[in-house]
Design a binder for these strands. Structure first.
Lengths: 195, 195
DNA sequence: ACCTGAACACCGTTCAAGT
DNA sequence: ACCTGAACACCGTTCAAGT
């Protein structure tokens, strides 16, 4: 069952909520996560107050819209954890994560924002799955053991952020992911003298 | 002479322009580059129309405020180009560049945006200086020769972007820069099988 | 040539009134 | 219990009138 109906709602309220989610997805696709919430409410056929009742903040609405995608990230992470090739598993997951953060313009910022992406959200489960993969790769010694897993996830989000800038796209994301992976794979600076 | 007076202006116009720049710097420091332009104009003692006359867009104002900082980046780049240690020079410059992009919340996005950072701006000279350093490092074989210099600059901006997110800061930027440098220094994936 | 500030359009958010 | 939509505050942007 979809997590978007986890709470018991009156029939009309559930319908409104669903309608808001669909309309919001459409609006975010077209105009990014900064799309006008007034327009969303209007297109969903409800008053602005109804939107705010269901989703107290923009971030809340954004996270609800991509809830399914985040669940997929978690499921994928759990599956890839069984993969015997930890390096391959990590690359796959990070690639998928970056693409997930790129479905709406401005989405990366929402996921990187701790107040938005808190314990109540699927977002956290997705990140936890990613951290497990990073840890596994470190244990298998296919990446360095001295990197902070949160830094890796931050870098992935940063790559998605770059990709959503003008004149950039999927190709850039791929290249930058390779750059990140190269940095993970290799020992810290030797030839680079500190400061 | 400061580039902020490159055009001849009537005395009162020049004074207004200078006042706007100072007030804007203050506002951007406090509220990020998204600060209210109305407030800036009010605090500078001019009407909103005057602000728009001097700076047709927010990006234009932002770039004017950090113009000196960008010039410093260019000068630093030119100096470091003479450094015999190309790896050290690159690290120094990228570190300074990341810090420069972190002086205001949201600044990194402005610099990454091509329509904002175009040929008329000091911003381009700064980026050119950085690219020269990257090329020099590649020629000296202290970094891989197959990385796109623009990707490196993008990554630096992305690191600054991460650093301006909640719960992150200068320490994160340092760590992530090391991660980037490790990726530059080392050959592309071997152990990581493609796809 | 430059400045002023009213005016317009738009948006997020709240809340009293309704069902 | 939930919805409605008017109302409020705020902001970017323009432009006619002024000096």
């Amino acid at each position: 069952m979809p997590r978007t109906e986890h709470r018991r709602l009156r029939a009309d309220a559930a319908r409104n909520r669903q309608q808001l989610l669909e309309t919001a997805r459409e609006a975010f696709s077209r105009h990014g996560v900064g799309a006008s919430l007034d327009d969303v409410a209007r297109a969903a056929g409800v008053g602005p107050g109804t939107l705010y009742r269901h989703f107290p903040s923009r971030d809340e609405l954004v996270l609800a819209v991509i809830d399914d995608g985040l669940t997929e990230m978690q499921v994928l992470g759990d599956e890839l954890l069984k993969d015997s090739d930890a390096a391959h598993a990590l690359r796959r997951w990070l690639g998928a994560y970056i693409e997930q953060l790129s479905v709406f313009q401005g989405l990366a910022a929402t996921l990187v924002n701790p107040p938005a992406c808190d314990e109540r959200h699927t977002c956290r489960s997705a990140l936890a799955a990613g951290m497990a993969l990073i840890d596994a790769a470190a244990s298998a010694a296919v990446i360095r053991a001295d990197v902070d897993a949160n830094d890796v996830l931050d870098m992935a989000a940063a790559i998605a952020w770059i990709g959503e800038q003008p004149n950039r796209g999927a190709r850039h994301r791929k290249r930058l992911l390779e750059l990140l992976l190269a940095g993970l794979r290799n020992p810290p600076a030797e030839r680079f003298s500190a400061s």
